[in-house]
Design a protein around this nucleic acid. Structure first.
Lengths: 365, 365
DNA sequence: CTGAAAGCGCTTACAG
DNA sequence: CTGAAAGCGCTTACAG
């Protein structure tokens, strides 16, 4: 079968859904039940206009004939739709999986049915997937933008009448509603926790400067240092990919240039994955996490609990954010929401075992 | 807006997708471009019948007017569809998330677009979701059945002309194609590994007897024992929920009734989660995993690598199974597949640090 | 309560 | 190459 794709339609193949056999329609039902198809339609929408005896007869016939409602036809006629698209950047990450589940639960009794698509952090795939959802007539979209998405990409995806809410990642310059978590507050609390334990030389590791989320977290880190009267030492901040290896390399670098007289004793990490990489680096240099170097992660993933020592982290309740995003989108669809809203979920400190007071210097000497 | 729901249609709400504004159609494009709508349609499917000059003009107009292809209308007219449904039981489990990603990747250039729905192990939700996909005209469905799904449930979901392939979990008595992994072989290899290290009293922990997957794994365990001439001791097999707590309780029970003269030294666990629960029980009783009790898990989840000691497990490549399921479904849709196929993916032993030779008895005394 | 008719946006023969 | 017409399965006024 020929590919479409040259025109405005995305290149998508089609097949007879019914395997050739014509499917049963309301006309067939009407004939067998001895009513008009209007009546069948009325039964379908549970209209009180239909006598209950008639309704039951019609329902019985539908059951017997294996009738399947054709939602596409109905949507076409009504110029309406009942699907909401969820576009997720990284399903393999349990954090985003939880988010998706939260969205789905919140939509459960809304009358909308959520469809999920996965972009695997590809901006191109994201454009494809959003276009396809539009072509399928989605009523709205919740989008976790793929890494590298910019405001222009988002503008291309937007179309009047199709509300989009951004989840987790806000995009600089994008004019869209969003649901994110309190990066600034979370990072501030993480840093304060370390300061409270007595740390003075605290690094900030991981993430790229262009990421809005990292900007927030870095800001929180700065704020806490400032509030405690500690200097911001640029040699203590490292950018990296938000990956285990990124954390590993960054920490190795920091450790190797750490001053013995005034050593690095702690780090706030961009997320748990980076923190776990940093843990490996600490171990690699013969040091001990918790004792020699205290570490805080972000996201409170399941892994944070299972590494050794268990990682102190900032928890952000992805399922709760998912619910918030779903609620916000519903309000946009119903047109009862302000044009642009930003919901910021709380980020709380979960203390485990990766942070202890720094070793006293004379104890080392 | 009134709920539907009494009739055969699922209770789903509808809204104007276009926010009131009528959307631009091929008729509008035709008018502006000065051609007939047939020509626009031909452009859409990249037909060679259209002169390239005309095609370009039409495409320019579509661009300018922000035309969005209405796939629902096209599907209706063609009695066809381009969506494939993926129904997943537990997205929060990275194993199933990987599976979903594998399916999606395999479908990427097939011309079909995958939509994912999540059942959270609810048979009722599963029925809803499958029905909705049918109503939306899905061309086929890949289904990871929710726990407790039986052949009758599946028969209700099936409809002629809508191919379904089962993934991961096969259902006893269901007449459907499936993609599963080699439970028998995997468990056999796990058990052989323990036997090879010198273990003689090896337990089998976790899962419920009704689960087809557990039947396979238990069979593999039996086969290995038999091949080595070891007796099958019923007191060494424990059923439980396939959860951490299930594994914990089972192992506690086994440990507490273990005979000091002929002690339990190893266990094959239904999956990694159960194994991790069992590890906790071993530790709780003051014993050491690896040294006193050797443990093998199943699934090779990320957690298996991160627990301490790292867990030996049976890896089953969920993404590969996803690809296989997608390929099989595509063949069913194209009607080039046998009526019922069963693909069984390999299950290989990944050796880590949770299994060692048993302590010699005289070493204990 | 029920029926006849129009129309949602598209594709598909069929003429020209 | 292009145009006029029918029809996919439904809903929605409008009559009766």
């Amino acid at each position: 079968m020929a590919r479409i794709g040259q025109g405005k339609a995305t290149g998508i193949k089609e097949t007879t859904a019914t395997g050739g056999r014509r499917s049963v329609t309301i006309i067939d039902i009407a004939e067998v039940a001895g009513v008009s198809k209007s009546t069948v339609s009325l039964v379908l929408k549970a209209s009180p206009l239909v006598k209950s005896e008639t309704r039951e007869r019609v329902q019985r016939v539908m059951e017997e004939m294996g009738y399947v409602y054709n939602r596409g036809a109905a949507s076409l006629r009504k110029s309406s739709s009942s699907v909401i698209g969820m576009v997720i950047n990284d399903l393999a990450n349990p954090f985003f999986a939880e988010l998706a589940i939260g969205i789905e639960q919140a939509l459960q009794h809304s009358g909308y049915i959520p469809y999920l698509a996965h972009t695997a952090e590809s901006v191109a795939r994201q454009a494809e997937v959003v276009r396809s959802m539009r072509e399928h007539g989605a009523a709205g979209i919740i989008l976790c933008p793929a890494l590298g998405t910019d405001a222009a990409d988002l503008a291309d995806l937007s179309v009047p009448g199709l509300p989009i809410v951004l989840a987790i990642r806000r995009i600089a310059g994008a004019r869209l509603s969003s649901v994110t978590s309190d990066s600034v507050g979370g990072a501030r609390r993480a840093t304060q926790h370390l300061i409270g334990l007595g740390h003075r030389r605290i690094a900030f590791i991981g993430g790229a400067e262009a990421m809005v989320v990292r900007q927030g977290r870095f800001t929180g880190y700065q704020e806490a240092l400032q509030a405690a009267g500690l200097p911001l030492d640029p040699s203590l901040t490292m950018e990296s990919m938000p990956t285990k290896d990124g954390g590993f390399q960054s920490m190795l670098t920091l450790l190797d240039r750490s001053d013995a007289l005034n050593p690095l004793t702690a780090a706030v990490c961009f997320n748990d994955v980076v923190a776990i990489g940093a843990m490996l680096a600490v171990t690699r240099r013969g040091l001990q996490v918790g004792r020699d170097i205290s570490l805080v992660g972000f996201d409170d993933t399941a892994e944070a609990q299972h590494v050794s020592p268990p990682l102190t982290s900032i928890a952000v309740d992805p399922a709760g954010l998912g619910k918030a995003a779903a609620g916000m989108l519903l309000r946009h669809i119903a047109d009862t929401a302000p044009k642009f809203e930003n919901y910021v979920g709380e980020a709380r400190l979960v203390i485990r075992d990766s942070c202890r007071p720094p070793l006293r210097k004379d104890a080392i000497a």
